[in-house]
Deep mutational scan, measured.
Amino acid sequence: MPSETPQAEVGPTGCPHRSGPHSAKGSLEKGSPEDKEAKEPLWIRPDAPSRCTWQLGRPASESPHHHTAPAKSPKILPDILKKIGDTPMVRINKIGKKFGLKCELLAKCEFFNAGGSVKDRISLRMIEDAERDGTLKPGDTIIEPTSGNTGIGLALAAAVRGYRCIIVMPEKMSSEKVDVLRALGAEIVRTPTNARFDSPESHVGVAWRLKNEIPNSHILDQYRNASNPLAHYDTTADEILQQCDGKLDMLVASVGTGGTITGIARKLKEKCPGCRIIGVDPEGSILAEPEELNQTEQTTYEVEGIGYDFIPTVLDRTVVDKWFKSNDEEAFTFARMLIAQEGLLCGGSAGSTVAVAVKAAQELQEGQRCVVILPDSVRNYMTKFLSDRWMLQKGFLKEEDLTEKKPWWWHLRVQELGLSAPLTVLPTITCGHTIEILREKGFDQAPVVDEAGVILGMVTLGNMLSSLLAGKVQPSDQVGKVIYKQFKQIRLTDTLGRLSHILEMDHFALVV
C-alpha cells in the first residue's frame, strides 16, 4: 500500500459497493488471473465517493441489488447463522422517566444476534452475496479491517462455511474481542490505534497488504460494500417497522461504517417519512454534520465500534436529520445504567446512543415513540467499562463513588512517597548505550525526554532486548525507535489509591 493515498477510480455505471474482489474501477472485475494482476490496485480507499443510485421515491424494481426479506425461524435451526436477525424490541421503562421523557422509549437489542452484535447481519450478508456472485469459493481466505464486531461476525460465518479468516484490528480494541476471535479460529493482526486510516500501518493498510500477498484472499470491505446497508434496509428496518406496527417518530443510532443508519433510515424514509433520524458520533470522530460539531482538541476516545477519521463510502449522511456528539463518560455511564436499571447487557456504544436519545427525544410528546439501536453486548468489555477499576483509572468514576473498604494508605498523596527525580535518556542515544546505562543503574525503564525536557515516551529494558533479539533494531539504532509513546501519567497530588489502580493494569506510571 502506498504512503500517498491515490484516488480510487470510478467506473461508468453500476453501484460502487459490489461485493467481491475490487477492480481499479471499484466494481467486480472478471477475466484471467493475468488481467486481474495487471488491473487490481494495491488498495482502494474506504472513503471513495459513493456511486449508489438510491433515491427517495425511486421504484424498488430499479435497484441493481439482490434483495432479501426477513424469514421466520424454524423450530430447529440448521446452523447458528440462522440465529442472525429477528432481534427483540424491548421497552426501556426507567431511564426515559428518569430523564423526563414523555414518549415511549424502545430498544432494538442487536446483541441477541448469534455473534453478539449488529455486525453479524452485514457479515453474513457480505459472505452470502460474495458466494452468490462467485467471488468467494471453498478454501478462500477472508481478510477484514475491523474494530472487532464485524470480525467476530465474519469469523463466526467463516467457521460454519469453512473459510480461512484473518482479522486486522487496532490495538485499542478489547482483549475479549481478541479472545472470541481466536476461539472462532480467526487469525488476528493488531495495528497502532493512532495510525491514520490511509497510513500503511493502519488496520485498513495492513489488511490490503495481506490481501496482495495471500492468494485467493478477499477483503469484503464493510466500508464500501453495498451488502452492509442492504442488510439493514432489507431486514433490520423491516423488523423495526413490523415490531412497531409502522408507528415510530424517531430513530437514534450510533454511527461507525454508517451501514446501520443508512440502511434503516432509507427504508424508514420510504415507509415512515415523518420519522426523524438521529445520528450519534463520538467526540474525536469526524462523521457528524455540520462540520463545526467535529471541532475539538480530542483525537482519541475509548468507546469502541463507532466514529472514524474518514467518511466511509457506505455512509449516506443525507438521510440523517440531526447529529449529536457523545463523550466517553456519558457513554459508559449510560451503558452501566442500562445494565443495572433495565437488565440490558449492552456495550458502550449503546450507552452513547441512549445518552443522546434522552436529549433528542425531549421534543417528542406522549403517545409518540423513539427507537434506539443497541449494537453489541457487554461480553466484549468485561475488563473495560464493566470494571470499576478501569473506570477509575480512566477518570470516568471517582473514588467516592465506590463504597468498598480501602487499605490505610489509600488516600495518601503520591508526594508522600518522597520520590527522587528519575533517570532520563535522550532519544538520540543508541539502544546499546541505553541498555548499558539501565543495567549500570539497576533500572528496568526510563523516560525519554528531548533537550527541552519534554517527555516523549518510555523505554524499557525488556522491550529493547526483545527488539534486538527479533532483529527489529540494532544496538547502533537510536533509542527513539523503541519508545512507548502511550503511558499513564500521575500527579504528586493524586492518591496512592489512584496509582494502585493504574499499576494493576500497566507496568509503570510516570509522575509529573
Results as ranks from 00 to 15, higher is better:
Pro215Trp: 09
Asp129Val: 09
Ala107Cys: 12
Glu34Asn: 02
Ala207Asp: 07
Ile261His: 08
Ile214Val: 07
Ala157Arg: 04
Ala60Tyr: 11
Lys75Trp: 15
Ala183Leu: 04
Arg18Ala: 14
Asn216Pro: 06
Pro70Phe: 05
Ser254Tyr: 02
Pro170Leu: 04
His203Pro: 07
Ala130Thr: 07
Ala159Val: 13
Ser3Val: 15
Ala207Gly: 05
Thr5Gly: 08
Ile261Pro: 04
Ala183Asp: 02
Ile214Gly: 05
Val168Ile: 08
Asn228His: 07
Thr68Asp: 15
Leu28Asn: 15
Ser27Phe: 05
Ser174Thr: 05
Leu105Ile: 13
Ile167Phe: 06
Pro12Ala: 02
Glu110Arg: 06
Ser3Asn: 15
Arg18Pro: 02
Ile80Ser: 08
Lys36Ser: 02
Tyr163Ala: 02
Ala130Gly: 10
Ala157Lys: 06
Lys75Met: 13
Lys94Ser: 13
Lys177Arg: 02
Ala114Phe: 02
Ile240Cys: 02
Asn93His: 07
Pro70Ser: 14
Trp208Tyr: 06
Glu187Leu: 04
Pro6Gln: 15
Ile92Val: 12
Thr262Phe: 04
Pro41Asp: 07
Leu28Arg: 04
His66Gly: 09
Ile167Asp: 02
Thr193Met: 10
Pro2Lys: 07
Leu251Ile: 10
Arg18Gln: 13
Leu268Thr: 13
Glu171Ile: 08
Gly14Ser: 07
Pro21Asp: 12
Gly14Leu: 11
Ala114Trp: 04
Gly274Ile: 15
Lys36Pro: 10
Lys108Ala: 02
Ser123Trp: 09
Lys267Gly: 08
Lys211Gly: 02
Ile261Ala: 09
Leu181Asp: 02
Ile166Trp: 02
Lys247Phe: 02
Gly263Asn: 04
Gln243Gly: 02
Arg51Cys: 02
Ser227Thr: 12
His67Ser: 11
Ser61His: 02
His232Tyr: 05
Gly259Tyr: 06
Leu181Arg: 02
Glu131Trp: 02
Thr235Leu: 10
Pro273Val: 10
Asp238Arg: 15
Glu128Val: 13
Thr150Asn: 02
Leu210Thr: 08
Leu248His: 02
Thr260Pro: 02
Val160Lys: 02
Arg209Glu: 10
Arg190Ile: 06
Arg18Tyr: 14
Arg209Pro: 02
Lys247Asp: 02
His65Ala: 02
Glu104Ala: 10
Gln222Ala: 06
Ser61Val: 06
Leu220Cys: 06
Leu42Thr: 09
Thr236Leu: 07
Gly246Leu: 05
Asp245Lys: 02
Thr191Tyr: 05
Gly256Glu: 02
Leu106Val: 10
Arg51Ala: 02
Glu131Arg: 02
Ala207Tyr: 02
His65Arg: 02
Gln242Ser: 06
Pro12Arg: 12
Val160Ser: 09
Arg45Ser: 09
Ile240Gly: 02
Asn113Cys: 08
Ile143Phe: 06
Lys177Asp: 02
Arg45Lys: 05
Arg132Thr: 14
Gln242Phe: 08
Ser61Phe: 09
Pro215Arg: 05
Ser3His: 08
Lys75Ile: 06
Leu136Ile: 09
Cys15Asp: 11
Lys119Glu: 13
Ile166Gly: 02
Pro46Trp: 02
Ser19Arg: 07
Pro12Ser: 10
Ala155Asp: 02
Arg121Ser: 02
Lys108Tyr: 08
Gly205Trp: 13
Asp129Thr: 07
Pro78Val: 06
Thr235Pro: 02
Asp245Gln: 09
Gly256Cys: 02
Lys247Ser: 04
Glu29Leu: 02
His67Leu: 10
Ala265Thr: 14
Ser175Met: 02
Gly134Ala: 10
Gly258Ser: 12
Ser254Val: 11
Asn212Cys: 11
